[in-house]
């Protein structure tokens, strides 16, 4: 079949219109970077440092997370645990009343080692949760944040089963898996996460492992840090300073 010049032109113009429409649609969907958006995903690799020695168990982070992300009641993107470890190290007393959203009732047990452990998604580089998603509805963003596509998730809950840390939950209203986004909507605009913003003691610090000027590099050099369940080999990026061996 031979194509006339007119056909060709008409085809081209159709293509142009299509491209323009598509571009506009993408822009409206916020796909194309908004004017003034200087955020480049490739320049970042996000994580967090949690300093056990600074956590006072006030629950500010849990409340802030809930307010920032409208976390449904009874479910937690972040929570705080209180450990009380006796000589019998295998059976610590662990509590997290309502995720510590209102802090903890005071305890004064003499002769017992006790401390707080804030928890959140570990934003694993080799995350077992994204590995098992059958459709690609949960994924690691190019800047190292484990996210869920709320419009693509089936709600099969395989990822919740696969997370060794209990960081995911099934959203009772949206009928999808849900979890910490590391406040992706904030950190990509130059803000810190809601939990870090609200932490009064600096026990939680958002860090950018790709930024050479981030104090994280000095911190990791000067402190003995640990990740949760290192035997799971998930490449967790939430680093705990002075974490006790009894913590699970």
């Amino acid at each position: 079949m031979e194509m006339t010049r007119r056909d060709l032109l008409s085809q081209c113009s159709k293509l142009l219109v299509l491209t323009a429409t598509a571009a506009r649609a993408l822009e409206q969907a916020g796909n194309a970077p908004a004017p003034g958006d200087t955020y480049h995903m490739a320049d970042h690799w996000w994580g967090m440092i949690i300093d056990i020695d600074k956590c006072i168990g006030c629950g500010n982070c849990v409340r802030a997370c809930s307010q920032e992300n409208q976390v449904p009641a009874g479910y937690f993107r972040t929570w705080v645990e209180r450990y009380q470890v006796t000589e019998d190290r295998d059976h610590p007393l662990v509590e997290s009343p309502d995720g510590a959203i209102n802090g903890f009732p005071p305890t004064t047990r003499p002769g017992v080692k006790s401390f707080f452990v804030p928890k959140l998604c570990n934003h694993c580089a080799d995350s077992p949760c994204t590995q098992v998603c059958p459709v690609g509805a949960t994924f690691i963003s190019p800047d190292g944040v484990v996210l869920i596509d709320p419009e693509y998730c089936l709600g099969c809950r395989y990822c919740i089963q696969a997370c060794p840390y209990g960081c995911r939950y099934y959203h009772p209203e949206k009928d999808i898996a849900d979890k910490c986004t590391l406040c992706y909507h904030r950190i990509t605009k130059g803000l810190t996460t809601a939990c870090c913003e609200a932490c009064p003691t600096g026990a939680r610090q958002l860090v950018d492992l790709k930024n050479p000027k981030d104090p994280v590099h000095a911190f990791l050099r000067d402190h003995k840090v640990q990740v949760l369940k290192p035997q799971m080999a998930t490449g967790a990026k939430i680093f705990y300073n002075d974490l006790d061996g009894s913590v699970r």
Binding site: Q131, V135, G136, L154, C156
Partner: peptide
């Protein structure tokens, strides 16, 4: 949770997922 999305398993099957 979203049975109407189950066809995504055929559209974009994730090779690393057993499911």
């Amino acid at each position: 949770g979203h049975p109407e999305r189950s066809f995504e398993m055929y559209l974009t099957p994730h090779r690393s997922s057993a499911m």
